[in-house]
Design a protein around this nucleic acid. Structure first.
Lengths: 136, 136
DNA sequence: CTCTATACCTAGTAGCTCAAGGTATCGCGG
DNA sequence: CCGCGATACCTTGAGCTACTAGGTATAGAG
């Protein structure tokens, strides 16, 4: 028979295996695969300033259609990055249409480097897993 | 002034740009980055049959800790793949503990190949985008 | 005059991944 | 002999990303 072990912590009663995993609590990691659209945007904007619609086309182009992010993905990310201080926006009137040009700030450069590194780590890991020969 | 154009279709009134995007409707694409945990599981099981807990440890091992999927990720995916017919399960009693061994079916092999190809395409695309020199 | 391309935007949803929690057995150290 | 850590299975609910669908507006081609 399994015997319950009670432990009162912060007013909450914990039992069994939960006790042993307490050290993990408090950190809410984001899904490990996410942030790729953001990375692509930061990377492209790290080379020259561009506007939203242009970025949508550009991503399709440089990835040879492998990745196609709609406007509904691009614009919200752009706005979030601007709020966060990674990008700064500049409105320009061209041919009667308004374009919003974005460029990287110093903070954005830092973020780009961090995300780039993370992606490399994950990508290397997955590649290794997919190439694993016969041992494991 | 912008003039509305009404179009009744299937009882729903559509206007403007929505009309031009109708051909896109009906296909609900999953997020393009997802399915990596599934791919890793299929790949490992394509080499030899393993049980859940072993897979959790194995993924950490072969990716050198780059990717760490918890049991809460592994087990649901395993169950879904079994329901789908990609895996078949076999219960074994070892040292008083029950292990559920999974192995690939023919359907699972097909799925593995498809996901592998998709991943390769996406990975190549992202790499290209990240390496783009100065043109775009 | 209408269609297409350009150019901006938001809301709601789908679904994947995660943290947290639960049950049970075995072996080791105290 | 009791507790702890490791092994081994499992589920629920929350969080968050990225997607689809939809909206407005101008310019130019046919």
């Amino acid at each position: 028979m399994y015997r319950l072990k009670y432990l009162e912590l912060r007013g909450i009663v914990l039992r069994s295996s939960a006790i042993r995993r307490l050290h993990l609590m408090g950190q809410t990691n984001p899904p490990f695969m996410s942030g790729v659209p953001e990375l692509l945007l930061l990377r492209l904007l790290g080379q020259r300033e561009m506007y939203g619609y242009e970025l949508v086309k550009s991503i399709k182009l440089v990835t040879s259609d492998a990745i196609s992010l709609g406007e509904g993905v691009i614009y919200p990310v752009l706005h979030a990055l601007e709020r966060h201080g990674s990008l700064k926006a500049k409105r320009k009137k061209v041919d009667g249409r308004t374009r919003v040009y974005y460029s990287l700030t110093a903070k954005g450069k830092k973020r780009l480097e961090r995300l780039h590194g993370e992606w490399q780590r994950i990508q290397t890991g997955i590649t290794a897993a997919l190439e694993v020969p016969a041992n494991a």
